[in-house]
Amino acid sequence: MQRVNMIMAESPGLITICLLGYLLSAECTVFLDHENANKILNRPKRYNSGKLEEFVQGNLERECMEEKCSFEEAREVFENTERTTEFWKQYVDGDQCESNPCLNGGSCKDDINSYECWCPFGFEGKNCELDVTCNIKNGRCEQFCKNSADNKVVCSCTEGYRLAENQKSCEPAVPFPCGRVSVSQTSKLTRAETVFPDVDYVNSTEAETILDNITQSTQSFNDFTRVVGGEDAKPGQFPWQVVLNGKVDAFCGGSIVNEKWIVTAAHCVETGVKITVVAGEHNIEETEHTEQKRNVIRIIPHHNYNAAINKYNHDIALLELDEPLVLNSYVTPICIADKEYTNIFLKFGSGYVSGWGRVFHKGRSALVLQYLRVPLVDRATCLRSTKFTIYNNMFCAGFHEGGRDSCQGDSGGPHVTEVEGTSFLTGIISWGEECAMKGKYGIYTKVSRYVNWIKEKTKLT
């Protein structure tokens, strides 16, 4: 034993070699072989497995989906700052455009905790909710729209109204504003409101030439003092309507412009014939205590009207009353817009006519005020429907199939267009061939041609 100890002390290297040989010859039971080890760690190889990531292109799944990435790591994937920024906006807080917040056709661009709407022409605001041009839906104005110097929408209202708090709607500024039905039992019968379409306001006024200088022999019209197929109006439903009495009662109609003036057809009036105007009328054979009678003290036909040349060209006249009318729910003026808007309103496509005229061709006159909704007829169809001249200051309205029309005794009465609950004068009943005849239409004086003249002559002093 002493000898062994001496050998170990003198030859430590020998001992180490012996131990190493023993270990190498022993069977290893701690580690699995290569094949079995792979069965336990069965993990798919990654895209760049075996390579240094710093030297390969980034992978979106590896960089940002398996674990949260930084902007720089995302930049490695896209290799483009702009594309990385677009991805980053949604990656950080989701897609803010998912709810489609942009209105009126706006395009949404996502941002971090926010979004941006790219608005089409005519709109602005956070969600493109603000109209900035009158060309689109009248700028959301209830009545009139004008573009300011910086191309912003400025709404306005006709006389007797003021802008509401929203700067879009119009509200009454006087007790009985024009064009409004205020009798409670008839307010439910107000005709369907007309909503502004998209309009090209630059070209809204037709490029028409008034044929002022045409000389033409007097034409022989049949029954051209021209509501057939209409309905009984309720008291106060058309408070701007008046009836004219002269040699015979209810020979023509008219509309209240203001307390002192009536507008009617020029062919209705004769110099030297006494005319009485009755406002607030409903049943011409009954006294309903809503009527107001006034005498006409002055007749002003349009300066281009000449019955000797043509009885229905420039067929418009103004009547001055001896005493002002007292405005109330049964006696209310009709609204008159400017030339541009009167023309736009007419193009809405349908209007209402009213009167006490004959209820059928050569038949009896109506006792109760009649009204009828009539569609506008395109000019080409209008011209083809008659052998008589249709001037540019006239328009056609009615039904091709016949059966409904204005008729004798309705002449001078109103053709009105309702705009968001307020009625505007767009025409004056003038003439036609018979009444409600198939293929024939009622012919009306186009008020847009005469609004400046009306307003100039009827100013209240």
Rank of each mutant, 00 (worst) to 15 (best):
E66C: 00
G58L: 00
P172F: 05
N59M: 04
I390R: 07
C252Y: 01
E286Q: 13
I112S: 11
V451K: 04
G160R: 02
S114F: 06
K152T: 12
V273S: 09
I275K: 01
L32H: 13
L14K: 05
L367N: 14
T84V: 05
E124S: 11
L319M: 14
I262N: 00
Q57E: 00
S11P: 10
L19I: 13
C268H: 01
K455S: 06
T389N: 15
L325V: 03
A366Q: 14
A366H: 14
V419Y: 14
W356Q: 04
F144H: 03
I316N: 00
C155N: 00
G21S: 14
R404I: 14
C108T: 02
Y441N: 03
D232K: 14
N38D: 15
S156G: 09
Q143W: 01
D95P: 09
S350I: 08
T417V: 12
E73V: 00
E434F: 10
E171Y: 09
S182M: 11
K51G: 06
F123P: 03
V331S: 03
V228C: 10
E124T: 11
Y450C: 01
E76Q: 01
A149L: 10
H314S: 05
I214H: 07
I309S: 07
G403I: 15
T287I: 13
D338K: 05
T84Q: 04
T287A: 13
F87A: 03
V374A: 11
K68S: 06
I17D: 02
S365L: 08
S156Y: 13
G179S: 00
A436D: 11
S430V: 14
C119T: 02
Y371R: 15
K438T: 14
E129C: 03
E35C: 05
Q90M: 11
C382Q: 02
N343L: 04
M6S: 13
R226V: 09
K168H: 13
W431G: 10
P120E: 07
C170H: 00
S184V: 15
A317P: 01
A207Y: 15
V248E: 09
V416H: 05
A173W: 06
E340H: 12
E171K: 09
F87N: 03
G413P: 02
G229V: 10
V92A: 14
G125C: 02
A192V: 13
V296D: 00
R449M: 15
E418I: 11
I275S: 03
G357C: 12
M437R: 08
E286D: 11
T290S: 10
E285Y: 08
I300T: 04
Q219N: 08
C252I: 00
T215M: 05
Y450A: 01
E270G: 10
G442V: 14
V56E: 00
M65Q: 08
V419W: 10
E61F: 03
I443V: 09
A207T: 14
W431A: 08
T461M: 11
